Simulated assay, not measured.
Amino acid sequence: MTDDTTRSLAFPTLFALCGVAVLIGLGVWQLERLRWKEGLIATLDARLAASPVALPPPPRWPALAQANDEFRRVNFSADFIAGQEALVYATGSALRSDVKGLGYWVFAPARLAGGGIVLVNRGFVPADRKAPDSRPQSAVDGVVDVTGLMRWPERRGLFTPDDDARGNVWYARDPAAIAAAKGWGAVAPFYIDMEAPQLAGGLPRVAPIRTIRLTNNHLQYALTWFALAAGLAAVYLVWLFGRRRKSP
Score class of each variant (00 low, 15 high):
residue 16 A to F: 01
residue 43 T to C: 01
residue 64 L to D: 02
residue 62 P to M: 00
residue 27 G to Q: 06
residue 72 R to S: 12
residue 56 P to Y: 00
residue 90 A to S: 13
residue 68 N to H: 10
residue 77 S to F: 02
residue 13 T to P: 06
residue 56 P to N: 02
residue 75 N to R: 13
residue 89 Y to T: 11
residue 79 D to I: 02
residue 36 W to K: 12
residue 60 R to D: 04
residue 53 V to M: 02
residue 48 L to Y: 07
residue 71 F to P: 11
residue 35 R to H: 12
residue 61 W to C: 04
residue 31 L to S: 08
residue 80 F to K: 12
residue 72 R to C: 12
residue 80 F to R: 13
residue 11 F to R: 10
residue 72 R to N: 12
residue 90 A to Q: 14
residue 59 P to L: 02
residue 20 V to A: 07
residue 95 L to N: 14
residue 45 D to C: 12
residue 93 S to P: 13
residue 93 S to H: 06
residue 31 L to D: 08
residue 88 V to P: 07
residue 87 L to V: 09
residue 95 L to V: 06
residue 47 R to I: 09
residue 38 E to M: 06
residue 57 P to Y: 00
residue 71 F to E: 07
residue 8 S to H: 03
residue 57 P to I: 01
residue 94 A to W: 13
residue 55 L to S: 11
residue 19 G to A: 04
residue 11 F to E: 09
residue 24 I to H: 05
residue 22 V to P: 03
residue 11 F to V: 03
residue 18 C to Y: 02
residue 43 T to W: 00
residue 93 S to A: 13
residue 11 F to H: 10
residue 10 A to C: 05
residue 75 N to H: 13
residue 70 E to D: 08
residue 74 V to D: 10
residue 48 L to N: 08
residue 34 L to I: 04
residue 39 G to A: 11
residue 68 N to F: 07
residue 40 L to P: 15
residue 22 V to C: 01
residue 60 R to M: 08
residue 8 S to Q: 03
residue 16 A to Y: 02
residue 47 R to H: 10
residue 26 L to W: 03
residue 61 W to H: 06
residue 18 C to G: 15
residue 84 Q to A: 14
residue 24 I to L: 15
residue 29 W to F: 15
residue 70 E to T: 06
residue 37 K to L: 10
residue 21 A to D: 05
residue 90 A to G: 14
residue 18 C to P: 13
residue 35 R to P: 08
residue 35 R to C: 11
residue 46 A to S: 12
residue 89 Y to E: 11
residue 95 L to G: 13
residue 69 D to P: 07
residue 58 P to W: 00
residue 76 F to W: 14
residue 40 L to I: 10
residue 14 L to H: 15
residue 38 E to H: 02
residue 91 T to G: 15
residue 18 C to K: 04
residue 48 L to Q: 07
residue 18 C to H: 03
residue 51 S to Q: 10
residue 13 T to E: 04
residue 68 N to D: 12
residue 47 R to Q: 14
residue 50 A to H: 02
residue 73 R to D: 03
residue 70 E to M: 00
residue 11 F to W: 13
residue 32 E to T: 03
residue 12 P to K: 05
residue 73 R to T: 06
residue 44 L to R: 10
residue 92 G to K: 14
residue 53 V to T: 07
residue 51 S to K: 09
residue 47 R to T: 14
residue 93 S to N: 12
residue 58 P to Q: 00
residue 84 Q to E: 11
residue 88 V to E: 08
residue 69 D to C: 10
residue 31 L to G: 03
residue 44 L to V: 07
residue 36 W to V: 11
residue 72 R to T: 12
residue 67 A to C: 02
residue 88 V to Q: 07
residue 26 L to R: 02
residue 69 D to K: 01
residue 58 P to F: 00
residue 31 L to F: 05
residue 78 A to G: 08
residue 9 L to P: 06
residue 45 D to S: 13
residue 93 S to I: 12
residue 25 G to A: 05
residue 65 A to F: 04
residue 60 R to Y: 03
residue 86 A to R: 10
residue 39 G to R: 04
residue 23 L to C: 09
residue 27 G to N: 06
residue 89 Y to G: 12
residue 30 Q to A: 01
residue 84 Q to R: 15
residue 71 F to M: 06
residue 64 L to C: 05
residue 10 A to M: 09
residue 88 V to H: 08
residue 38 E to N: 08
residue 67 A to T: 00
residue 93 S to M: 13
